[in-house]
Design a protein around this nucleic acid. Structure first.
Lengths: 234, 234
DNA sequence: ATTAAAACTTCACGCCGTATAGTCGCCGCA
DNA sequence: TGCGGCGACTATACGGCGTGAAGTTTTAAT
């Protein structure tokens, strides 16, 4: 029966999943630095070298983890955004942004893994470690900008950007999903990404709390100004 | 002669300086991960343990480096800002922001050292690694916000923030240097910090270039909107 | 010249990633 | 039922890391 070869594959998949699970556990308890092949193996009752049967190198494992974690972030923000109706662009933006910060505060080590120097000596592959998830995040943000664009277009100069200013794949997807949307809206999306990423990043890495005990208040003010700056009703 | 005791101290200071210089050199050529006691010692023709006569631990050395590098960043942005006259708040903001990004692009490893996970296993001291320099950066930003406040105050709700929302030292300094400035202006400064930090950080860590070949254009648009959002004339 | 301290080396330990070679058990096939 | 092969795993080893303990050399002060 073909199930026998299926069995091996299943065992293999289970072990792979356990490696990743243990690695994520180590990360959340001891930070990304705690992701070591030896520690994972110890926890699993194996030898470190056994892991090489599943991942060619430690960086390979880390890249996979980044992709998984980034996907979970993308899922979280997408879900929060889609819980609001499409005719409430301000609410969708606020939901997305709050989900982003909440996810980061809940998974600070994951945030560092995705956006920081993930692990000692890690070299990211040429193409980004999680291009697909990062792409989803940007596309989702552009969707938010698209929802706000009818209000925002009066406030922004359209002429400054061209489609060639963006990654071809991103541009193509946006033009297909939101026909008529100008490239300037994608620029807005990237700028919003930068704003939110910056505030959350400073908070996660401890730079914000030195200046203010209420980073949440700063973030809320940011949201209010963001929505106002897009010409949306509160 | 008293110069004899002075000689020892001078040699000691020179060696300390050389350790830091070599460490910074390793960092700029091989990234923060390349800062290892053994590599520094190798470069200096010493043993790794000799460094323990100058720094209690590797983390101590890294903390000192962070402080030095952060100070050089603070110097750069302060100088750029002060090159513009006080009666040109928009120009001062633009100068500060451009100096910030330029410094980061020139010293990407320094940026990672300051704002990222500096080095494998590094544990920041309880109080921030470079509180003085970080303070200067925030105070400088608040100065920019103060310059813009006469124009911006119409656009922002003042009531949302109180002085107790900020670090007492920061608040005290701001209140002394800019009497009459409301706490809302400090919130604006922190938000601007977040915006610029986020865009630069995404660029430095390679997330922005995956989405756009022209991060400079995004940054320029950010600046324009920032100045416009503060009610300043371009 | 003597002495005490500072600067530096040597050796050792336990981590790490990973390359190489070898062992064991399960699979399909005769 | 026996057997060959292959995949999963272990054993051993190398060089790198931070760092502690102990010993040696250099230097300044008496």
């Amino acid at each position: 029966m073909g199930t026998t070869t299926g069995r091996r594959e299943r065992l293999r998949a289970e072990t792979t999943a356990e490696i990743k699970k243990v690695a994520l556990g180590l990360m959340s308890s001891g930070g990304p630095d705690a992701i070591t092949l030896r520690a994972i193996a110890r926890e699993m009752g194996m030898t470190a070298n056994a892991i090489y049967g599943y991942f060619a190198t430690r960086d390979d494992l880390v890249t996979t983890l980044i992709s998984d974690v980034y996907t979970s972030l993308a899922d979280a923000v997408d879900a929060a955004r889609d819980a609001r109706p499409a005719d409430d662009p301000a609410g969708r933006i606020a939901a997305w942004a709050n989900a982003f910060r909440d996810w980061a505060l809940t998974n600070p080590e994951g945030f560092r893994l995705i956006y920081g120097d993930p692990v000692p000596g890690y070299q990211a592959p040429e193409t980004s470690a999680a291009p697909e998830a990062e792409h989803r995040v940007c596309a989702g943000l552009t969707g938010l900008a698209a929802g706000a664009w009818p209000h925002a277009k009066e406030l922004y100069p359209e002429a400054e950007f061209e489609w060639s200013d963006f990654d071809p794949k991103l541009a193509a997807e946006v033009r297909e999903e939101f026909p008529g949307l100008p490239p300037a809206a994608v620029a807005i999306a990237l700028r919003i990404w930068g704003h939110l990423h910056g505030l959350v990043s400073l908070e996660i890495y401890g730079h914000m709390r030195v200046q203010t005990p209420r980073p949440d208040k700063i973030y809320r003010a940011e949201l209010a100004q963001l929505i106002r700056g897009l010409g949306l009703p509160a």
